[in-house]
Design a protein around this nucleic acid. Sequence first.
DNA 1: CATGAATGAGATTTCATTCAT
DNA 2: AATGAATGAAATCTCATTCAT
Lengths: 195, 195, 195, 195
Amino acid sequence: MTASPERRTELLATAAEVFAAQGYNATTVRKIADAAGMLAGSLYYHFDSKESMIDEILSTFLDELWAGYDAVLDAGLGPRETIEALVTESFKQIDRHRPAVAVYQKESRHLAAQPRFGYLTDLQQRFEEAWLGTLERGVKEGVFRADLDPRLTYRFVRDTVWVAASWYRPGGRHSPEEIARQYLSMVLDGIGVRT
Amino acid sequence: MTASPERRTELLATAAEVFAAQGYNATTVRKIADAAGMLAGSLYYHFDSKESMIDEILSTFLDELWAGYDAVLDAGLGPRETIEALVTESFKQIDRHRPAVAVYQKESRHLAAQPRFGYLTDLQQRFEEAWLGTLERGVKEGVFRADLDPRLTYRFVRDTVWVAASWYRPGGRHSPEEIARQYLSMVLDGIGVRT
Amino acid sequence: MTASPERRTELLATAAEVFAAQGYNATTVRKIADAAGMLAGSLYYHFDSKESMIDEILSTFLDELWAGYDAVLDAGLGPRETIEALVTESFKQIDRHRPAVAVYQKESRHLAAQPRFGYLTDLQQRFEEAWLGTLERGVKEGVFRADLDPRLTYRFVRDTVWVAASWYRPGGRHSPEEIARQYLSMVLDGIGVRT
Amino acid sequence: MTASPERRTELLATAAEVFAAQGYNATTVRKIADAAGMLAGSLYYHFDSKESMIDEILSTFLDELWAGYDAVLDAGLGPRETIEALVTESFKQIDRHRPAVAVYQKESRHLAAQPRFGYLTDLQQRFEEAWLGTLERGVKEGVFRADLDPRLTYRFVRDTVWVAASWYRPGGRHSPEEIARQYLSMVLDGIGVRT
DNA sequence: CATGAATGAGATTTCATTCAT
DNA sequence: AATGAATGAAATCTCATTCAT
């Protein structure tokens, strides 16, 4: 006898895996139900709709992500340390919520057009403020190069971090911390050998 | 099934825009037809199926991309210059085929599962050989750092380049060449100020 | 299936209200259960099916109605007094069984098509015999006008009486007896022979 | 090759018959499609939804009904003549739009709860103003009895007229005009003041 | 070349009903 | 008596595709 919230969580984890693997639109509720070992109609005892499933998957992940981000942003670190901490936090979230991140990466753009998913647009805005603001602060304080457009840098960094969810496999060769370290080393110092 | 090639090309451009904006699965043939100013059924005079549209969009783009890549790879350049040339070529292709690249980026993973799109898997393989091989050659020749896992570097670089298709707008602030230059500067030298 | 009769009666009253307000088909067992403060499945401890609920609602009402009608019809009254008594009895039933009457009015026609509800057709037949017969007797005896088609009169009277269940509210401005009086005053002074 | 508006009209006539016979909720789109000789999905080429079908059925009927009513109300007739004209007009509409009237009679109450069908509530209001207003004017002018509550009279008259749609069959024993005449004779000689 | 109308398969969703606890 | 979770059938609706004109 599984209590209700646990069952929901289990089912959402299953759904997130299928959404991540096949894409939201290509995923039928029947596939989710198959993966959960039940009939399609039975899912509707737990959820209002397929849409409410992806909604709950995304908002659960984003709540946790922003708890971590806010802790970083409130810590009063310098720009370089802030970027390091945000990247590390991001890869930790990818490790914990890989399917949700993959879904977010693939689907958030078109979902954001619907009123129900307006929070995606809001958070996207806060995301840009946090990252781009930190990069610009770093340029101003002389710790980041001034000859690069921070808007471009922001986009490169943002995309690379999240796209990692599409290839990252927990328990693989590198831990999330190690991936974050190498990624930061590349972005901050470059891959070229110093001459 | 004898349509003028120009009309096909026009329609494919329209279809690519819609696929890029909404995703392949979420795009109905009716939406494509609306965007083209015709009725859904009329598209079938020009194309066998919705699938054949995305097939033609992707293979047209990939043919041109690989023509460029092959020219670079056959030029006998050093690793750093090869990476520079591949990145520059990639951003040029994003400039010319933005919707196709966006579609490729979003849809190739699940399409590749179908036999019809087996060429996507083959090209993905060649892609990895070209990029990862060049990075590894660079490490061996001492022009790229040896303390980073080239497999990770490869994934970061690959993803960042293609994901750019999702935000790049032709005629925007930066030319594709300028974006490539800044991108290469970041990856090769880092965004941190040298001390 | 051994529920206390009081609980059954309570639940049937609740169900009748919901059926009357929303229609039988539009009423889900979940709505009834909500109104009764329980879960949908729990209703099946008390009743075999949704159909058996409406069956019991209708037959309980009709049993009582016909007890009243039979008393009137067996009293040996003249046609005018019989019509007066039937109308008065009908409005009394509407007062006591408003939701059941509303359900009867709305649903009996299509329910009657099913074998289980054959008794609706039988009673409809007895109903017509009682009312139409009395009207025709009244014409023959010269107390009702002969220039009106009694079949039309019958339908007008029948419908108006029962449709009243859809607007009547117990405890409203007029008592059922007063409504019956005004209704009879309108109808009888119209169809009655002038003296 | 039937032109589009004609096909819509045909299909709506079919749908109205089925709605009238079985009730809106009990009518599946498959039943409508069967009656129209097509597959259920094909209906969606012509209509957005089952709801939009009943919407169009009701509003088409109500538009025509109110065109007739407005002509009557604008004619400057006395109360008795106005009631006569409204009743006659109503029975004519029942003759022309019998299924739509039956649907209106059965379904308007619950449909009116939805915003989409708010116009039903508005028209119900105008309906009451027209009929009840005329009855009250008649009482004031001394052509209708003052000892009956006009609100009750209004309800009886209103219901009897529309309920007729549930038994009326075009081409039956009585023409709509004859039904109106007998109905008026019954009702008016009852509520009219004796001279 | 394109339209208008349909098909048919399959998607999401609803809901009466069952049943172990 | 009632709950919580499911079933399974059927409903509404979607959409790629076909085809006569």
